[in-house]
């Protein structure tokens, strides 16, 4: 095999872009774990529903995917707020195994509701066919936009969490719930904001996924596992680290595909996460806890 610059360039760009999309899927999962201490497997179910929502909007000629996404994001924000008040209100107090069962149950509900309404068929939005070409590297416009949106949202979220008062309050309650309560922060309300934000992120992830990939109901289960392993790799409650871990996994997958095969690349990814966890038990980018 010839590893010409264009082949390697294609590999690097594809890996980084796909990795950003993975990161976008994982960020919301990470945010809600960090703030509300909820292991929310159902996050992927929300992503799936957004994908179907955008699909329906596009197929019925109502809107372009990105326009549909623009509507979906605030809509999901509101829904997320409501969900944290109702379905998820008691979840953060549960033990790990209870949370896993509860949110996995919710994921099943969401996944199979999608199957009930939309059927088991594969869906795919016709791509624009527009591509950017440079030095033999060909990148689909949708993929570039998807990667850019993912990166942009990661940076924006990072800035929000580290610069704004609300963001700092959310981080404070993530670091130390008890302390945040003592400082007079309304942790319950912050959890609602976090869940709403995580839903909005799911909407973003769903919108960009729908423009690049094929999907069907069971995709939800696969995305849940993907988000979970990325977040475990990055460190559960560090949102930006989850994005970086997503990019890392995308790059790893692209490299493994080029050198061996995608199937072996997956084995290598799991083996890598396994090794990282043994060496750095709090995830790749998280500092060790101190007392």
């Amino acid at each position: 095999m010839e590893f010409s610059p264009s082949v390697i360039g294609q590999m690097l760009f594809t890996g980084a872009l796909m990795g950003s999309i993975y990161g976008a899927v994982a960020m919301g999962f990470s945010l809600i774990f960090g703030v509300a201490k909820i292991i929310n497997f159902a996050h992927a179910g929300v992503v799936l529903w957004v994908m179907y929502g955008v699909l329906v909007a596009v197929r019925s000629g109502v809107a372009h995917p990105y326009v549909a996404g623009l509507v979906a994001i605030p809509l999901c924000y509101v829904i997320g707020h409501g969900v944290q008040r109702t379905l998820m209100a008691r979840v953060s107090a549960m033990s790990d195994d209870m949370q896993i069962i509860y949110t996995f149950g919710l994921l099943l509900v969401l996944t199979y509701m999608a199957q009930f309404f939309f059927g088991p068929d594969v869906h795919f939005l016709p791509s624009s066919g527009l591509a950017v070409e440079f030095g033999g590297v060909v990148l689909q416009v949708e993929t570039i936009i998807a990667g850019a949106l993912a990166l942009g949202s990661a940076l924006a979220l990072h800035a929000f969490l580290s610069r704004t008062w609300l963001g700092k309050a959310i981080r404070a309650s993530a670091d130390n719930r008890r302390g945040a309560t003592l400082m007079g922060l309304d942790v319950v309300r912050l959890s609602r904001v976090a869940m709403a934000l995580s839903f909005a992120l799911a909407a973003l992830a769903g919108t960009i996924l729908v423009t690049v990939t094929t999907f069907y109901p069971l995709r939800g289960l696969e995305l849940a596992v993907l988000a979970f392993v990325i977040v475990v790799l990055g460190g559960m409650d560090n949102v930006f680290a989850s994005f970086v871990a997503g990019v890392l996994i995308g790059m790893f997958e692209a490299l493994g595909t080029l050198l061996f095969s995608p199937s072996i690349a997956h084995m290598a990814i799991y083996a890598m996460i396994f090794a990282v966890l043994l060496v750095r038990p709090q995830g790749l980018f998280r500092r060790r806890a101190t007392k």
Binding site: G15, M18, T213, E253, S261, P262
Partner: peptide, 22 residues
């Protein structure tokens, strides 16, 4: 001989890039 995992395939340019290189 490229084996890939259908359920985990989000995008396939990686596979095709490899085929093209050969």
């Amino acid at each position: 001989r490229v084996a890939y995992t259908a359920a985990k395939l989000t995008e396939a340019t990686g596979i095709v890039n490899k085929l093209k290189a050969q």
